[in-house]
């Protein structure tokens, strides 16, 4: 084999190799740039457009930003959405933890497998249908109050309250959070937990000192997902919370629907997005921060 041919062969192999490489690398770059980055950038640009006679016109004005950020109701919604999503996340994480703990440490493998399997089922049912069902269950004339009335209790107002909203959020997030928490806990080295017990560590102290730190990454990721899902959900606060007052996602729908104010809806959306980026970033930093000491 002469040197020349081997060089050609090598370069053709290299060329082939780079074709191969790009075949796998490029599609997603092109696709996501066109249909993910594109729309998001356009939305940011859109927040500077104007609307005349229900038609959007390209422009560059600060009006939408000044108008939305200058309104008290926008900030009220902002705080409210934070609060609701925050409460929803805390409650969901707390409710999920004993369940995940049971599944990870107490349940047999078969039980765990079936439980996870059951937790996936809700993903195959329509979220809307489940929310509609809650509507019937929580109503004043609904299932729960009918049951309580036999005990001489109630009726309790549960619909169109923040309680209703949180129930809705949990419908969306609880199965996912339990699954994520279970995986986070199941990955812990059990011998360490047992060692803690054997050294006389009490259960709650073990959870606090041993289990939580070791499962931190997974738990924080679960919480971040829970928060993001709740923060962006418009179905629960609308149907179970009576949009009273509206959260940011409802504000987006309202703004689009009435008067076709897409640019102002875009302002709300951009603010939400920035907020969630900050939350997600902070969460990831916290999750992967090296443990000190």
């Amino acid at each position: 084999m002469s040197e020349a041919t081997s060089t050609t062969a090598a370069s053709s192999a290299a060329r082939q190799s780079s074709v191969f490489k790009l075949t796998f690398r490029l599609p997603i770059i092109i696709w996501q740039s066109l249909f993910f980055i594109g729309p998001l950038c356009f939305m940011v640009a859109m927040s500077f457009f104007i609307v005349r006679n229900y038609r959007m016109q390209e422009d560059f004005v600060m009006k939408n930003w000044l108008k939305m950020l200058g309104r008290d109701y926008f900030w009220d919604s902002y705080v409210l959405t934070w609060g609701l999503a925050g409460i929803g996340t805390v409650v969901t994480m707390l409710v999920a933890f004993p369940a995940a703990y049971t599944l990870a440490f107490k349940a047999s493998e078969a039980v765990r497998r079936w439980a996870i399997f059951m937790l996936i089922i809700p993903f195959f049912t329509s979220y809307l249908v489940r929310i509609f069902s809650w509507y019937v269950i929580l109503a004043e004339s609904g299932v729960i109050n009918a049951g309580l009335s036999y005990l001489g209790l109630g009726p309790f107002v549960m619909l169109n309250t923040k309680f209703g909203t949180v129930v809705g959020y949990m419908t969306l997030t609880l199965p996912l959070v339990i699954i994520l928490q279970t995986f986070a806990l199941a990955n812990i080295d059990r011998s360490l937990v047992e060692a803690a017990f054997n050294l006389g560590c009490r259960p709650f102290r073990t959870i606090y000192r041993v289990i939580l730190p070791m499962a931190r990454t997974g738990l924080i990721i679960a919480a971040v997902f829970c928060f993001i899902l709740s923060f962006g959900d418009f179905v629960s606060p609308y149907y179970l919370g009576g949009s009273k007052p509206p959260t940011l996602p409802i504000l987006i729908v309202d703004t689009v629907k009435s008067g076709q104010q897409w640019p102002r809806a875009a302002v709300v959306a951009v603010v939400m997005m920035v907020t969630l980026f900050v939350v997600a970033f902070a969460g990831i930093m916290a999750a992967y921060r090296r443990r000190v000491g």
């Binding site: 249909f35 729309p39 939305m43 962006g232 996602p249 729908v253 897409w262 997005m273």
Partner: peptide, 12 residues
């Protein structure tokens, strides 16, 4: 959030 994707996609 889906609602934001929805708005952005629709406009785009």
């Amino acid at each position: 959030p889906l609602i934001i994707m929805a708005l952005a996609m629709l406009a785009w």
